[in-house]
Design a protein around this nucleic acid. Structure first.
Lengths: 197, 197
DNA sequence: AGGTGAAGTCATCGGTTGATGACATCGTCC
DNA sequence: GGACGATGTCATCAACCGATGACTTCACCT
């Protein structure tokens, strides 16, 4: 018969998948450096040496996990209510996602660093940039990077153990707060809030 | 004679000081984990094993460096123009300071984590909190943590290599941008910018 | 049924880290 | 000047890391 039986004792595709999932979780929770291939193997219930076989190295597994997450795409223009909500929900469920950690501290590994930087721009900075360009906002790229960086700080701060209330706060409340300030719709034209003329 | 000659070949106080300075710099540049005691010794021009003698361990040296920086106190209420400027200047000169890194990712070492968390609150969150309380802002503690976290994202993002324009931007421009949004004076009372009635 | 290659296991390598204790050297004080 | 404590140097340890290659075990096909 075909090799698709789910209970197979030996199943390369399944092992590969489990490694990828475990890696994605752990990289998100602890970051790249603090995650060991032995940790990944343990969580996946798979021998860690298979990482080398199926992905080549820890770095390449990281990049693969990054690309696998790209499909789920919980990122986009943060000014859309639904997107912003998704970003918070996802961060709550999955921990602080490798993507965000690079926004805040470079990785030692050059390949991993560059792959993450690229993904961060595609999925977070670029949508913001396009919106600012569309709206004719001043300094659109700088502003997109600024908003992305600030939002990263908030998302990561919720899981850092350094901010108690921020961690406990309801995502909806946070979104309301952010929308009134950082994500204020008319930023760039009104340096301060004032009466529209 | 007394033991205060500056050119002494053996001088515990001087070695201690050099270790402390080098540690402060490196912890700021690379964070706690990625800084090795050998790195610190090399930069200080002092044998790394003296760290154990003078401070007890890498962790205790980290905590000592944290407290030594507290004296310089470039932190405070971010709504004061001068303070905000200082924060940016300092981050540009010294790199992203250990304090900020904990706002974004917990440390493995529990003692180091807690010491940093406490310092972060004292020097960044608490001044903001007091201001919000003074102004009668809604949810002052949450709001202080939110602003601190967002600001941390911006400051760290400038050195992460992930945001080109943010890294290259003039601090003054950034402050202007932030003041119009995240640090908007009347946040908390006007969820959106609109005409005052 | 038996062979063959894929899938999984295991021992181990070289490198790095924080820490430790033995040792050498210098300065000071009697 | 000689002894003793402070200061600095060195070799080394145990733990952990990513990686590798040899080995075993299974599934499938003829």
């Amino acid at each position: 018969m075909s090799g698709e039986a789910p209970g197979r004792r030996r199943d390369a595709a399944r092992s590969r998948e489990r490694l990828l999932t475990a890696a994605s979780e752990l990289f998100g929770e602890r970051g790249f450096d603090r995650t060991t291939i032995r940790d990944i193997g343990r969580r996946a219930g798979v021998d860690p040496t298979l990482i080398a076989r199926y992905f080549g190295s820890k770095t390449l597994l990281y990049i693969a996990a990054l690309q696998a997450e790209a499909g789920e795409a919980a990122f986009a223009d943060l000014y859309e209510d639904e997107r912003l909500r998704e970003v918070f929900d996802r961060a709550d469920r999955r921990g602080p996602v490798p993507l965000l950690q690079v926004a805040v501290r470079p990785l030692d590994d050059p390949a991993a660093q560059e792959a993450t930087r690229a993904a961060l721009h595609t999925r977070l900075v670029e949508p913001l940039h396009e919106r600012f360009v569309r709206e004719g906002t001043d300094r659109p790229r700088l502003r997109a990077e600024l908003v992305a960086a600030a939002m990263t700080g908030v998302l990561l701060g919720r899981h850092s153990g350094a901010f108690d209330e921020l961690a406990a706060a309801d995502p909806g409340d946070l979104i309301d707060l952010l929308r009134g300030t950082l994500l204020s719709e008319d930023q760039g034209r009104h340096p301060r809030c004032r009466a529209p003329d």
